[in-house]
């Protein structure tokens, strides 16, 4: 029954999208964090998706996985806040380069994709249950 494999496939997609949502929430939570040094500033984290390629003997379906999480190399904002406890000698603190608008759209996209995966799972569950009823009338 290759329909059972659909559960695996959709499940891999759901966990990948969940990880994406996780990074979004981490980014949003750390949007207002400050640091004394430029290197120490929080940088927006983004997951990288990749198709899991089957070995040649395998069947048609392939899952998705998150290969790595990359940090955004957008410039880190430098704010002049001499009274801030984390300010350096020149009076600057380094904020995070999280773009809240980008993160919100990312969140919506991730949740829609998650829903698509659950729908896929539901459809194949329905088909499987129909198949179990086979020959009963």
């Amino acid at each position: 029954m290759s329909l059972f494999k659909v559960f695996d496939i959709a499940g891999s997609g759901m966990s990948a999208q969940m990880l994406r949502l996780n990074t979004v929430s981490s980014n949003l939570a750390n949007a207002q964090t400050y640091s004394t040094t430029e290197e120490g500033a929080y940088r927006s984290r983004q997951p990288v998706f990749q198709t899991v390629l089957n070995d040649f003997n395998n069947e048609d379906g392939s899952k998705v996985r998150v290969t790595q999480i990359v940090e955004s190399d957008a410039t880190v904002p430098m704010n002049y806040m001499p009274n801030h406890p984390l300010a350096n000698e020149q009076g600057y603190v380094f904020g995070s380069n999280v773009n809240a608008v980008e993160e919100m759209t990312n969140m919506m996209s991730a949740s829609r994709s998650y829903q698509n995966n659950t729908e896929m799972m539901n459809t194949s569950k329905e088909l499987l249950l129909r198949t179990l009823q086979l020959g009963r009338g």
């Binding site: 959709a10 379906g61 698509n116």
Partner: peptide
């Protein structure tokens, strides 16, 4: 299902 999962 593979297509849906790899939409992103």
């Amino acid at each position: 299902a593979t297509n849906v999962v790899n939409a992103d």
